[in-house]
Design a binder for these strands. Structure first.
Lengths: 140, 140
DNA sequence: ATGTAAATGCAAATAATTTGCAAGTAGAGC
DNA sequence: GCTCTACTTGCAAATTATTTGCATTTACAT
């Protein structure tokens, strides 16, 4: 991942700074998606000079290069997750916001049908399941 | 739709005001999803006294009662659409933001598998296709 | 027609994200 | 290793969507 970004950075005359490294490490090691604020707080531990603005700018850089997804739960902010190169979806716990990857994808046949029906040029899709994880089911 | 809301309002001691009527009419007649600002501008034509605050409060009321969906395209604002009672998904044009309903849904078998694998209690899902509509394909 | 709880409009508050700018730094070339 | 320069950063201030407090208005049950 670090390498994927490094390659992209050098190709475009960008620099691998301490801040970018820290932010990237936080994102890579997280198994949930994180808000900008959360990334900021954790990255600051690795590199105290990291500021929130830089977090936002790094997020933008990663997103532009398709290395990061913006996820929205409807609570007026985004969360971000490293975009593994494999196509996948998520199941999201409405209690604790935990996300688990789903590798199975049932969409391709649908896409074919819809393409025929609508004449859209289809470029992608998003599929998320919602529910409660075993832990949060007990808490209810 | 008007009726669905009216029933809900009376059951809960809420009132059917001119503003709510106007906002509801705009939402019902729209075939895309609208931002709060767009709803506000259009509702003002039907009832000039309508203000943006009331739009937000009505949106909240509708959403709480499951009559409205909040949709997010990643551009830092929500768009809203009346929630038809039938389960469906959307294909969204990345050019003009037009949305078309899709009634076919390939998710149920996946849900069964994932439920077994993760022990989640699954409460719902969201599926959206992205692409370019015939008009926007030409414009590119 | 009246009383009252619910709804409204306005202005101000909040919260996430973005921007302008002066100062700092990575890394290519020597 | 040193220098140069374009790219980055941190800070503070701006912007944008959404929410809230409050005095006033209004729907509707009686």
């Amino acid at each position: 991942m670090d390498n994927r970004l490094k390659k992209i950075l050098t190709n475009q005359n960008y620099k691998m700074t301490k801040q970018r490294k820290a932010i990237l490490q936080i994102l890579s090691e997280s198994d949930t998606c994180l808000s900008a604020e959360e990334i900021y707080l954790q990255a600051k531990k690795l590199n105290p000079s990291t500021c929130l603005t830089t977090v936002y700018r790094t997020i933008e850089l990663l997103a532009e290069n398709n290395l990061l997804n913006k996820v929205n739960f409807g609570d007026n902010k985004y969360r971000y997750e490293i975009n593994s190169s494999l196509h996948h979806h998520h199941i999201i716990c409405l209690g604790c916001k935990k996300m688990i990857e789903i590798t199975e994808c049932p969409v391709s046949r649908l896409e074919k049908n819809i393409k025929t029906q609508t004449q859209f040029k289809i470029t992608g899709h998003r599929l998320e399941l919602y529910g409660y994880c075993p832990d949060c089911q007990q808490a209810i």
